[in-house]
Design a protein around this nucleic acid. Sequence first.
RNA 1: GUGGUUGUAGCUCAGUUGGUUAGAGCGCCUGGUUGUGGCCCAGGAGGUCGGGGGUUCGAAUCCCCUCAUCCACCCCA
Length: 418
Amino acid sequence: MASVSPPPGTSDILPCDSPAWRWVESVAAEVFLLYGYGEIRTPVLEFTELFQRGIGGETDIVRKEMYTFTDKGGRSLTLRPEGTAGVMRALAGEAASGNGARVFYLGPMFRGERPAAGRRRQFHQIGVEDVGSDSPAADAESIAMLVRFLDTLGIAGYRILVNTRGSSADAASVSEILKERLKPLADSLCADCQSRLDRNPWRVLDCKNTLCQAVVDALPDITESFSEDSRSRFDEVKRCLDAFGVDYEVSPRLVRGLDYYAHTVFEVVHSGLGAQDALAGGGRYEVPVPGVKRPVAGVGFALGMERLLMVLESLSVELPSLDPPKVYLAALGSDALLANLKMAEALRAAGVGVVASLDARSLKSQMRTANRIGAEFAVIRGGDELTRGVVACRTMSDSSQVELPESDLLEFVAGRNG
RNA sequence: GUGGUUGUAGCUCAGUUGGUUAGAGCGCCUGGUUGUGGCCCAGGAGGUCGGGGGUUCGAAUCCCCUCAUCCACCCCA
């Protein structure tokens, strides 16, 4: 049993599941194209330094969740734990050129966490990045696009949480202010938060511990400490969201766990998910890329495929399934089987899906197979048909059966509802 | 990393206070039709009871270890 299981936190996507994946991915590509986004594919493997610098050395992801190894050239490589850093590396040139870029990506990400509902070690994200525009409207448009995507999929019941972290310049000073305000109250904070206090005081804000929340709630509004520019920028983002018709909630507690965020941060949560209720998350960022002078700035979000599919399932949204082959070819005797192989190729060349029996078992078992795989037609050929150059074509749904020349079969099966 | 849950046939699961040869449903195969699916009937194949160790006359059942699973903490998608 254990030998047939993949490593912990990974799983197989089987043929019965992949049509739903393809559907979600194709809807994503269609919706994002409406906003001028093209697909980018970056390596799953990057230099470790990219993530250490990009995501931030004090984040949980970098501190304890990365799959890192040394390759034969002595380089430290890491399986990407998120998509933005790699995309920023790839787009650093575009950003520097001043032209900007709008891209989306999809693929596996890796984090060494303990698996739970909606959390895997290999999971899949769909993400988008708008690099090169620093307009507040870009932040809002990103959220609007996410909303359109979710709505197109038929997802209902989600909430959009929005907040600001202030400019990156604000971050340091506000961080100090938070420290000052929290230090005297450290005794009332949970153990995790006490250690976070020095390392990353922001994270205290979104601690789920009720004691910590009480402490945080009693604190003065932190946005008051932001610069005037940062505050008016956030006001502008909200005005744009209104213009886009996006229904959002401002959530002062939302800070997110990656260091590269500045200004707008947002999250989409859904109750159909369990303890991990974040369906998507993102915001405006400034990502330091090794070898590049200035951080690459942009706005974007990432969304969890597995969680998306969980929500779709919880909402009973109808998902596509694998299309069965149209025709099943049954053979009696080795000569008929050979003739079927040739006929199968002719039908496929004409675009008709065919499964041909590859060994001449009893007709009964071949018919059972035709039924099980959901073929629309079962075509039967035995020695008798073979000598007369005909086949018996059975329409499975109504059990009607006709005998017709082999040359007429394509027209017969293709003629019915194309 | 911490805590709990579960692990028996391909799948979903029964299995009594430890007691002969470990069961069911679904699926699969064969037959009931000289060459005809679904429904029905009969038969059949398929199991190191996750793995290792221990207790015992005897372990799927009790104990320890280990691996895996799911869930929660944590973190985030």
